Simulated scan of single mutants.
Amino acid sequence: MKLQIPDADVLWDSLSALRRFELTLTVEAGDLDDLAHVNNTVYLAWCERVARDHALHLGMGTQALLEAGAVPVARQHVIDYHRPAVLGDRVRVRTALTRHAGVRSVRAYALDRINPGDPPEGVRLAECQTEWVWVDPVSGRPKRAPAGVSAAFGFSG
C-alpha cells in the first residue's frame, strides 16, 4: 500500500490527546550533512524519537508492549521534504496516530521550524508517515494489538 501523507495540521486538531504528541528539538552540529543542512536520516530518527516518547508518555514503552504480547515494527516510511533545517533551528516534531485496524497502525508526523520571527504555526520542513505492523514479540508473526494497548493509544476495541 502506498501511503498518502494527510494534512497533519487538520489531523492534529481533530484527534484526542491520547493520539497525538509533540516535542521540540534544537538542530545540533551532528545533525548536519556536508551541505550544512539537517541530514534526511535525522528527520526519520526524530520521527522515531517522538513516536517512542509518545508511547513512553502513555505507559506503552517497549517493556510494557513486550509484556502485553505485541510490538510495532515499521513496514513503510514516506517522507516529503519541504525546506532544510540548519544549525541552531528549533524544530517542533509532532506525531498523530491516524489509523489503527487489524495488525496495522499509521502515524503521521509534521516537522516545523519554530524560530523567533517564524509564523505562530511554524514553517513546515517535512511531513512523514509510517505504517507500523503489530507482531508477536516471540514468533515475529503479525498479531492484533491487545485491547488494552489500543485503548492506551486512544482507540477503542
Rank of each mutant, 00 (worst) to 15 (best):
A74Q: 01
D34I: 08
L25M: 09
S16F: 11
A36E: 10
A55R: 12
H54D: 08
R104W: 10
H54S: 05
I114S: 06
R94K: 10
H57W: 05
A55K: 01
H54L: 09
C47L: 11
G157R: 14
F155A: 05
L111Y: 08
G157A: 15
N115C: 07
R124H: 04
A152S: 15
E22P: 03
F155G: 10
A51H: 06
L87N: 06
R52G: 03
P146E: 07
I5V: 13
Y109E: 04
D9C: 15
P142C: 00
E127Y: 01
A145M: 07
G30K: 09
D89F: 07
L87V: 08
W46V: 13
Y81I: 12
T41S: 12
F21T: 13
A29M: 05
V71A: 11
L25F: 01
F153M: 15
R83N: 08
D118G: 06
V123T: 15
G69V: 06
R83Y: 01
Y109L: 04
A96P: 00
S14V: 09
R20W: 11
T41N: 15
D89A: 02
L66Y: 12
S150F: 03
I114E: 15
T130R: 01
A101R: 12
K143Q: 13
E127V: 01
G148H: 13
A147P: 01
L66Q: 09
H54P: 13
A36R: 14
S14F: 00
R52K: 08
V73I: 09
A108N: 13
D53T: 13
V73E: 11
E131S: 02
C47T: 10
A108Q: 09
V38W: 03
H37F: 10
Y81P: 04
A68Q: 07
G88C: 11
R90D: 01
A17E: 07
G61I: 11
V78C: 03
V10L: 02
L111I: 06
G69Y: 11
D89N: 04
P116E: 04
V10Y: 01
R75K: 08
V73W: 01
R75H: 03
V27H: 01
L23F: 06
G122F: 11
W132S: 06
G157V: 14
V93S: 12
F21S: 14
D53V: 06
E67I: 02
V103L: 12
E28A: 13
V71R: 03
L15W: 12
V103P: 02
P72W: 03
G154H: 06
A68D: 08
E28K: 02
S105T: 09
P137M: 09
A152M: 07
